[in-house]
Amino acid sequence: MIIHTQEPILEVHDLTVSYSRKPVLWGIDFTLPSGSIAGIVGPNGAGKSTLLKTIMGLIPPSSGFIKLFGRPLEEIRQRVSYVPQRESVDWDFPVSVLDVVLMGRYGKVGLLRNTGARDRSIALECLDKVGMSAFAKRQISQLSGGQQQRVFLARALAQEADIYFMDEPFAGVDAATEQAIIGLLREMAAADKTIVVVHHDLQSARSYFDWIILLNMHLVAAGPTEQVFTEEMVQQAYGGRLNLLSQVGDVMEKRAFPSREN
């Protein structure tokens, strides 16, 4: 079930991606409205991160095309922000928290020039938004997992983009940080920013996202959460790979916010 939007901000058209000739994503075709918080949901190996990386131009597609704001990525890079998986970088790298957030300004500063006082104040402001301003001078090797994620988020905010792509921002963070992050994302969406999040927790997906992209190598469903995030669709995405169908039904019944361990 694929529900398209009339005025798409992101348009993925008939996208196929392969790793050494083996397709990992088939015929992905969906659109996204402005100001939404969209979740890319699916089982492990469904190609969620691959989809995000392809949209960001990090992996070349075998076929199909992607348009952001009706144009190819190269023309509107300034308006697009990317938050890679936290584990993808070396957190022992000798830089401070502020240095990392300033990296978000590099695209705006341009080649051969350095970040200035204005970039610095924007970076500090972004750190404040994620509640990390006390850590600006801290070395990144001293941060906890949740703090690392907040720093990455601050760096993305510093880009002052209109659309944000986040790869597993909730992985390995505690419940408090998760709430802080989702609160921030809602604020951003209210300011008409669009946020696309790779997520693998079915329980929280319903309450977090207003648009869902259900993926399992091919596109199972895409559209507003109430319409496409149904038991049938989730079973279709996870079916055959998981023996948890009853649990999936369970999730569907629990509309209320789930309780968590730790």
Partner: peptide, 19 residues
């Protein structure tokens, strides 16, 4: 300096910025 630093620390983010 800033390109060397960024491409060493986070190559994926660097590419996303167009570096």
């Amino acid at each position: 300096y800033k390109e060397l630093k960024l491409t060493s620390f986070d190559p994926a983010f660097a590419s996303a910025l167009g570096i």
